[in-house]
Design a protein around this nucleic acid. Structure first.
Length: 811
DNA sequence: CAGTGAGCGAGCTTCCGCTTGACTT
């Protein structure tokens, strides 16, 4: 620290991200020191909204706990610099960061320059330095309006939910709409009735001068009933088949735009199976290593220098005719385009070192970027119509031939739709009136598809489409709504469904019933009952705030503020006055809402059965609380919903716990507890497998299997213990081996074989662990309250590692 | 950790966007 102060740099440049700072420092060279603010440095205080409602919404900003150190350092560096260059992003948030910096660092106007660039290239930086400007107060005000609005909505609505639904719930401009999308889709699925029809498919053979080729064709009509399908198959037996027409049509395919945050998240989910959070953290690694450009962006634009580098990479690899330089336009609402699209920093690097995940994601980004500057693919589509004797329906065969592959050479975008089993392929040459032989003919009953549930990535796409949320918040929003208990992400195995199958064997039509798994879901988002109750409450009392276009409407206002046409406080006032009124009225008028439904009378006891949300989630109640006898309660299973459960299903919930029999002379009982369905045996519990086992139907054999599996796991969990002290154990946990001692857990260094640890080794590790825990605690208690332990502890640790010499001296 | 759900009351919860580590049993 002392050394830095001596060699005063004349210029201090402040950007948002440390990785960016490193790169830019290289471009600028001597006389420039480049530092980062690590994003926003101040935020509204939590107390009293951080907004003075009696004084024109005056915001109260405070430096966040984890930014104090950064601010201290920047302040001292700014003091010693001749010129401070505020180089945060050129969007609303970036402008606000520049303004907060100038306020907190007490920068004088003469000394301060605001510069912006949209790409991290030497030319862009140097030209930015050439044309500095002042901070745009209007843009800053637009950000203040955005911030204050979000705080007011979030901190007024959430407490209404605590009183009317359940404590600790949350509501907000973004998350509540995300939840609404899921709830409404789930209800569409509830209401969906699958219809079925019979598709007919055939395999024909054509004789091309002795060479026989087979190809597939499908009838251009679907039959409503089994009888109609049967009749048609019958009429095909022994019929003549001939080609009625052959139509060839050229078409082109164009590549997709380079990646933005949202499209990267979607493609990484589809092609690599990454969650949106995973994608972001792997991308962060690549970005920090200088391998890709910034990963939180809404822009599809590529730097000019990148486009030419990509073009020359394509030329050298595939030849000039594969190059087509293209400029893409951002389609998404509210895009602020402060950065480039996500692309390889060096487009001539087809691969990188790093973890398998990093390599895969880089490969995806590399190929997508390349493809975006490549030629269209030229396709020839062929449609062949085939007549069946005198029948009016025709068979249709479609073929696709790639005449020129273009961008398809490197990249094909995936889609969420499950592919039709037979996608178009190559067809043999045919002409009108060619005779065909029928090789195979079958018809199967197909059911219409219910509306698809959202995955993390498809929800992000929908939010982006509605202009809700930002690239930096997509992943956190998804995890917030899961943490609040509004959403669970899981697999559902589906249920077996019978379908009818017909085929032609010789001249005879055969028929059998077959079975398929229907409605299976993998890694999808399911709204909970809490989500449904909360959503209905918000929709009925605050329809304006949770409407799909609320964000779009306020964004228009923010734009007006940014243009200087509207005062931010006036805009907020116009929203807040009626909104606050709404809140007050709702608190007064609305009843507590529990989603209660009375299902009917239990045939066994004659008592009423109802369902509602209780303290611990959705449950069923048998009997009324006015009765002398206390009511019985039972939690709903994960697949059941308050609004769809039937009396019969609810009655069965009270059959639990169920006696399954005995195993090793001890009772085996199945029930549903706090952590879901379980099997109990000999005082031990084993959880039922989610989506596989059903507590209502599970049998003894399966229960024993679960008990044995649990035993196996428990055995593996235990590594060793010591005669000297029974409290000390070496165990296997989720993150590998650890030491457990007197209800506390301790880390084992990575290079140590856990099984080889001696008693003394363990004691040493425990002593070390206690030491670090104590020092952390010391620093925490100084700063603030209980809940912030993790945050301030990390701030404390950072301090320790970056300036370790000084801390040692201090001790 | 495992069949909870009374009623009272204190004290707490909560938003969105911009950043990165630290660290989990």
């Amino acid at each position: 620290m002392a050394k830095k102060e001596k060699t005063t740099e004349e210029n201090l440049v402040i950007v948002e991200s440390p990785a960016k700072a490193k790169t830019i420092e290289k471009f600028l060279g001597k006389g420039f020191m480049v530092k980062s603010s690590f994003g926003h440095i101040r935020d509204l205080a939590k107390k009293d909204f951080g907004i003075d409602l009696n004084h024109n919404y005056q915001p109260q900003y405070i430096v966040s706990e984890d930014k104090k150190e950064v601010v201290r350092e920047l302040k001292s560096l700014a003091k010693n610099a001749d010129t401070v260059w505020l180089a945060s992003d050129e969007d609303r948030e970036g402008e606000a960061i520049a303004w907060h910096l100038s306020e907190v660092l007490e920068l004088s106007q003469e000394k301060t320059r605001r510069i912006v660039f949209h790409e991290i290239t030497k030319e862009a930086i140097l030209s930015a330095i050439e044309s500095p400007r002042a901070i745009d107060d209007n843009l800053v005000n637009a950000q203040q309006a955005r911030r204050v609005l979000d705080r007011l909505v979030g901190f007024e609505l959430s407490p209404v939910l605590w009183k009317k639904v359940k404590p600790s719930l949350s509501a907000g401009r973004v998350q509540s709409v995300a939840v609404r999308l899921l709830v409404e889709r789930e209800r569409e699925i509830f209401d969906f009735n699958a219809e079925s029809a019979f598709r007919v498919s055939a395999i024909f053979t054509i004789d091309e001068g002795g060479k026989k080729s087979d190809f597939k064709a499908e009838l251009n009509h679907r039959f409503k009933t089994l009888e109609e399908a049967k009749a048609f198959l019958n009429s095909c037996a022994g019929a003549d088949f001939k080609v009625n027409s052959v139509v060839k049509k050229p078409s082109t395919k164009t590549p997709a735009a380079p990646f933005t945050t949202s499209t990267l998240q979607q493609e990484a989910a589809r092609k690599l199976g990454f969650s949106v959070g995973q994608t972001m953290s792997v991308a962060q690694k690549l970005y920090e290593a200088g391998k890709i450009t910034y990963m939180r962006t809404d822009s599809v634009n590529l730097a000019k220098s990148a486009v030419s580098a990509v073009a020359s990479a394509i030329t050298s690899e595939f030849g000039e005719k594969y190059v087509k330089v293209r400029q893409y336009r951002t389609k998404s609402k509210g895009a602020q385009e402060a950065h480039e699209a996500i692309r390889p920093t060096y487009p001539d690097n087809p691969s990188v070192s790093g973890s398998a995940q990093e390599q895969k994601l880089y490969d995806l980004i590399y190929k997508r970027t390349m493809a975006s500057q490549m030629s269209d693919a030229l396709i020839e589509k062929t449609t062949v119509n085939i007549g069946v004797g005198p029948e009016k329906h025709q068979f249709v065969a479609t073929g696709e031939v790639v005449k020129f592959d273009g961008f398809l050479k490197v990249y094909i975008e995936s889609s969420d739709q499950e592919e039709d089993e037979e996608s178009a392929t190559f067809l043999p040459a045919m002409k009108e009136n060619d005779a065909l032989t029928l090789k195979k003919l079958e018809s199967r009953q197909r059911f219409s598809q219910k509306p698809p549930r959202y995955s993390e990535a498809s929800l992000v796409r929908k939010l982006e489409e509605l202009g809700i949320g930002r690239p930096s918040t997509y992943a956190p929003t998804i995890s917030t709504i899961q943490q609040r208990g509004y959403v669970v992400k899981e697999d559902r195995p589906g249920t077996p469904r019978a379908y009818q199958f017909l085929w032609l064997e010789g001249e005879a039509v055969k028929h059998e019933e077959r079975s398929e798994m229907a409605n299976a879901e993998r890694n999808k988002l399911f709204p909970t009952d809490i989500a449904m109750v909360v959503n209905d409450f918000l929709v009925s009392y605050f329809p304006n705030v949770v409407s799909y276009d609320f964000t779009a409407r306020v964004e228009q206002e923010f734009d007006e503020i940014a243009l200087g046409n509207l005062g931010w406080q006036k805009a907020i006032d116009e929203f807040y006055k009626p909104f606050h009124q709404q809140v007050e009225e709702t608190l007064e008028k609305s009843d507590r809402t529990t989603g209660e439904r009375v299902l009917g009378i239990d045939p066994k006891t004659g008592k009423p059965i109802s369902v509602r949300i209780g303290r611990f989630g959705p449950m069923a109640q048998l009997g009324s609380s006015d009765d002398e006898e206390k009511p019985r309660y039972a939690p709903l299973t994960r697949e059941q919903h308050l609004e769809t459960i039937t009396l019969e299903e609810a009655v069965k919930l009270f059959d639990l716990p169920r006696d399954l029999g005995t195993y090793e002379d001890k009772k085996v009982v199945v029930g549903v507890g706090r952590f879901g369905p379980y099997v109990r045996h000999d005082g031990k519990f084993a959880s039922l497998k989610k989506g596989v086992d059903d507590p209502m139907t599970i049998d003894l054999d399966r229960a024993i299997e679960l008990i044995e599996e649990k035993r196996e796991r428990d055995n593996k969990k235990y590594i060793k213990s010591f005669e000297e002290d029974k409290d000390l154990q070496v165990l296997n946990g989720r993150w590998g081996p650890y030491i457990s001692y007197k209800k506390k857990n301790y880390k084992i260094p990575k290079d140590t074989e856990a099984a080889d640890l001696s008693y003394d080794d363990c004691l040493k590790l425990i002593a070390e662990g206690d030491k670090t825990k104590k020092t952390k605690k010391g620093k925490t208690s100084k700063t603030s309250g209980t809940k912030k332990t993790t945050k301030s502890a990390s701030a404390g640790k950072k301090k320790g590692s970056s300036t370790s010499k000084t801390t040692k001296k201090a001790k």
